[in-house]
Design a protein around this nucleic acid. Sequence first.
DNA 1: GTAATACTTAGCGTTAACGCTAAGTCAAGA
DNA 2: TCTTGACTTAGCGTTAACGCTAAGTATTAC
Lengths: 127, 127
Amino acid sequence: MGYTIKDLSERTNLSPNTLRYYEKEGLLPDIKRTKGGIRHYSQENLEWIGLITCLKNTGMTIKQIRQFVDLSLQGPETLKARCELLKTHKQEIERHIEEINRYYDKVNCKIDYYTKQYEQYMEEEGN
Amino acid sequence: MGYTIKDLSERTNLSPNTLRYYEKEGLLPDIKRTKGGIRHYSQENLEWIGLITCLKNTGMTIKQIRQFVDLSLQGPETLKARCELLKTHKQEIERHIEEINRYYDKVNCKIDYYTKQYEQYMEEEGN
DNA sequence: GTAATACTTAGCGTTAACGCTAAGTCAAGA
DNA sequence: TCTTGACTTAGCGTTAACGCTAAGTATTAC
């Protein structure tokens, strides 16, 4: 039971290098080892990595994630703090979403504009 | 008429350094100069920078933007190519939007989860 | 005329998040 | 048993997109 580092690498699309790096940086606590020292990731570990990846891909730095992880390790007294941290981050994400939507509109406008320009150009050339 | 580099820096939130850098990299063609060699940005230049910024902040690299700019400089024969390029990029943006929405949902789930955990914790402690 | 701003070249520094390598050791599944 | 994969330390390399500095010159708004 459990995943080897290669298994997990495939499931998470993170390289073994990256998985070791995250562990070293404190983002992945409680990874079990065999007697021989080989990592064995649990289902829980896999899910945790899902959360880490989520935070990372929405703009959190490793250091910031580290702080969140440190809180998590301190037990239920920090539940509120963790919640606040996530709520703050949620607002960040909302800002990103707004921004990207604005840019999306802008690109669409440009596409329309170029399309019209192109049609006009073809008409002129077409004669 | 026209903006100095400082004016434009303020309007675009790009540093003078960055504006010169973009120009050097070929993202900003046709910037006029005074006899003395001082840059004078036009309204058109400002709008162009708006587009560049849009592409950059939606994940295009300087090099890719450069290709788009090069096409633009070649006149109306490249209108179709530019259009295709933007459409491809539009799909990229759509992928980003989907991704970020998934992450957004995940963060919200976590917030709910922690909130419930917290309430439960408070109940237990509250006695 | 003078202070404030702009220009150039050029080249080194920075940050984040890894990648990669090497050397040497160890583990474990078939 | 043997081959395949895993482990460690440690340290250098990489990429993108600038930042910063210095030195020395030129311009321009007031």
